[in-house]
Write a protein that binds this DNA or RNA. Structure first.
Lengths: 124, 124
DNA sequence: AATGATATACGAAGTTTTTCGTAGATGCAA
DNA sequence: TTGCATCTACGAAAAACTTCGTATATCATT
């Protein structure tokens, strides 16, 4: 259920570009790093067997689609990450991230709005 | 440099309890899961070779100390995680975490304070 | 001195993840 | 129709991580 790092790379391509062939995914990945065509193929076949991807015959090749959504996957990954890296303390993670990374004013405002809503919930 | 999951477990024990023997670390880990004594020993030896831990003879046994701090390690882990899971978007991670996890009012207030400071910085 | 408990070191098996070579099928162009 | 490009399937090597058995040394107790 938890995608590995290599699997995550492929999911990101599919989430960004929609259903794609192995060739398309490989072309995309190749821009960032060295990876053989059959490596990408094999990974996608494994992911298909695991149920992470679906696929459809498309002439001589296959078109693959992500079965899991980006949001669901990220939710799972965050859960694990909070556990293993922060021993369950989500707010510690948030503090760490906010202190460490730049964000635009729009993003900060968005976060503040979310925080206000959370605060209101708590007060009820 | 990046600790594996098993290594992270051991680091957490050392961060929480300070310098410890293999026995102490193993006793601690055993509370949460099945793990052989020699497994813990081996892991700590490997971590020593990697430079993640230092150690000191203490009679017949060794006392191990974390070389890396919890903060530095978490900073590294967060960087990687933002990259692999959120393709670099730290604020997306924050939103996801805040929406997903419960936090106490104190924690939320703390985060808001931090946010206000960040906002002020941006406005200058 | 013998025994039992406990320590390290070492090697290696077991798992999971990543990578790719090779074989065989199919399409296309000369 | 021959040959080149491109696809899948398959197997298996390579790498990274986890686990533990066994040998050996040392300490404490009888």
């Amino acid at each position: 259920m938890k995608p590995t790092d290599a699997e995550l790379e492929i999911l990101h391509v599919l989430w960004a570009n929609g259903p794609s062939t192995v060739r398309q995914v490989h072309d995309n990945l190749s821009q960032n790093r060295d990876i053989g065509y059959t490596t990408a193929l094999k990974l996608m076949q494994i992911m298909y067997e695991k149920g992470l991807l679906s696929r459809e015959e498309d002439g001589r090749s296959h078109t693959y689609t992500a079965v899991v959504t980006e949001e669901d996957t990220q939710r799972n990954l965050v859960d694990r990450f909070v556990e293993t890296a922060f021993r369950g303390s989500a707010s510690k993670l948030v503090m760490q991230v906010l202190g460490q990374h730049k964000a635009s004013r729009e993003e900060l405002d968005e976060i503040k709005t979310l925080l206000n809503n959370l605060n209101r919930d708590l007060l009820d």
